[in-house]
């Protein structure tokens, strides 16, 4: 009844398929290695010309001028400013929305709002960039006439609105993961819903909330199109959100919009900038991953 030949070929086929599937899964690791390899390989020639110390301490970033300076801090300042403005919007709004949806809203409202928030997370960033430059900036100029056409404030504000869905949905998940008996205990002691939310649920969901904020930071740091369109692409060492400035990602876009021959100086600088950006997001991602893992293990 059993045919040994068939059984052997079947085993062989199984092994072959398993190997193919494994290769597909391993390809994701290959992508990571490729990213690191390409960034380091293409950025290294720059560090042969520019010492690392001046890369980190110079206060100007003018790599394409005759008087070339390579102070990455200029771009980091721009990134930090737009990120700070975005978080000032996204963290309070996202947290309040998450508390409301998780602790106050009815089941029906929550089930209606969540898909809508999810939809908003899918809006292409170039559309948000359009809003920032052509709608929000003119509005802000009515309030504050001296505001330049390109500024980090409007880019940051719109970026904040864009990040709200991410922050609120991850925070809400974290708060809903808090077991019901903790809430019931709090209610039994006579606490209101707000007291329960702020003093019981939020501390219990702390690492999840932190992970949500870190996810927000990571998004804001890596966000490209909004800042490239609305914040101007001129490197400017400032943390004043009313001024135009370039972020790390906006600089990469600016260089890529021009003619970019392989092995030109501009080509090397965008990989150095990309490597810096990658290191930042890597740190935030690892921190977020670690925090999320912790909050999963508590209950």
């Amino acid at each position: 009844m059993l045919n040994p030949g068939r059984s052997r070929s079947r085993r062989l086929r199984e092994r072959l398929i398993e190997t193919l599937l494994f290769l597909a899964a391993a390809s994701s690791v290959a992508i990571t290695f490729a990213i690191v390899f390409i960034l380091v390989k293409e950025a290294l020639p720059l560090f042969r010309e520019v010492p690392l110390a001046s890369f980190l301490t110079d206060r100007q970033w003018t790599p394409l001028f005759d008087d070339a300076h390579f102070g990455i801090m200029t771009l980091i300042a721009g990134t930090a400013t737009t990120t700070a403005v975005a978080l000032a919007v996204a963290i309070p709004m996202g947290t309040v929305i998450a508390i409301y949806l998780s602790e106050f809203a009815s089941f029906r409202l929550r089930e209606t709002i969540k898909p809508i928030l999810e939809l908003l997370g899918a809006v292409p960033t170039v559309v948000f960039g359009y809003f920032a430059l052509l709608v929000v900036t003119p509005l802000l100029q009515k309030l504050y006439p001296d505001l330049p056409g390109f500024n980090m404030l409007s880019a940051g504000l719109v970026m904040g609105v864009m990040i709200i869905p991410y922050v609120s949905s991850v925070s809400e998940d974290a708060m809903r993961a808090v077991p019901m008996h903790l809430r019931e205990g709090s209610y039994a002691m006579g606490a209101t819903r707000l007291q329960t939310a702020v003093r019981v649920v939020m501390p219990a969901a702390f690492s999840g909330l932190a992970a949500a904020y870190i996810l927000g930071i990571s998004r804001a740091v890596g966000e490209t199109m909004i800042v490239a369109i609305a914040a101007g692409m001129q490197p400017n060492f400032t943390v004043n959100p009313l001024e135009p400035a370039a972020t790390i990602s906006a600089f990469i876009v600016q260089v890529c919009l021009g003619d970019l021959p392989h092995d030109s100086l501009g080509y090397k600088t965008i990989f150095a900038a990309g490597l810096t950006l990658m290191l930042f997001t890597l740190v935030f991602n690892i921190l977020g991953y670690w925090l999320r893992k912790r909050f999963r293990e508590i209950y």
Binding site: L39, V221, G274, L277, T281, L282, F284, N285, Y289
Partner: peptide, 16 residues
């Protein structure tokens, strides 16, 4: 690694 890739900014993929 898959989790980490999901967090890499899109412009980095562009550089890759």
């Amino acid at each position: 690694n898959v989790m980490n890739l999901a967090g890499v900014p899109s412009i980095i993929y562009g550089l890759l």
